[in-house]
Design a protein around this nucleic acid. Sequence first.
DNA 1: TATTGTTATACTCTATAACTATA
DNA 2: TATAGTTATAGAGTATAACAATA
Lengths: 154, 154
Amino acid sequence: MTDHEGGRRDLAAMMQPLVRNLIAAELPVLAAHGVSMWGYVVLNALDGEPMRTQAALAQAIGADKTRIIGTLDELQDAGLIERTPDPDDRRVRLLAITAEGRRVRRAVQAEIWANEDRLLAGVPEADRHAFLRVVRALSALPREEYVRTPGPAR
Amino acid sequence: MTDHEGGRRDLAAMMQPLVRNLIAAELPVLAAHGVSMWGYVVLNALDGEPMRTQAALAQAIGADKTRIIGTLDELQDAGLIERTPDPDDRRVRLLAITAEGRRVRRAVQAEIWANEDRLLAGVPEADRHAFLRVVRALSALPREEYVRTPGPAR
DNA sequence: TATTGTTATACTCTATAACTATA
DNA sequence: TATAGTTATAGAGTATAACAATA
């Protein structure tokens, strides 16, 4: 564990501004396609597999069920998703992305990826791959694994 | 540019939950030492070199000058920083960390680093170093470099 | 009575504007 | 008048609680 020699800063302190900048870079792309950040997150979640309830979708994307309603309204009005009542249980709304929604999602993602590739262009390929491996590994950890309250310094 | 084969997600989408978890892991440590997140950021900024004005400090940590006032009050009341009026210009408050503030900062950082080391323990050393190199490289990019509005997909 | 989706309310965080004291 | 710091006001985002429809 010699990574801290030379006095690096906390991981969160280094990564948070980075993530903020990445998000800032996504906003004009999303705006150009008329989709909000949460709308894009929803499209990503629904592409591939539809969801049976809004609560399930909310949980899948780490949001509150009350928080995504406005987003779903917008996406539906724009024709990017469909929200159809389930005949078997008329309380639930079946959620599915439309062909147009898929098209918008792919267009947005292509531009975002192109920008990420540009940012990473100066990084050696081996480092880039290792970086993505570590990001994926850390992303895979459940939250409980992160928050391991340590005892006071002895 | 073949990093996207296999359908990875956007960098921000992967890294944001990760950063959120890292921050969640810091909170109990900070609470145990009676320091807020912004307080810790301020201590980090003041350790090493003092600041002449609060506005300069605010800019250095990417905050608004009005936003840090409560934080400075708390840190001062806890004896972790000193805020002395400048005799040459009695409008400005000279900011400096105290010995106790330095002690608290180091104790908090030691616990945070220990936790980060634990999280990264499963990652091969070469990957870990490459990861930190890339994080540092991306952190060094100015915001203008991130937000390069691309043309519409052609 | 329990659950899905919705609406209403409150709370937190941040940004903007107005104020004071010095210069 | 201009600036450093402070306080007051307003806005965005989120969480909690209450509600209507259906089971």
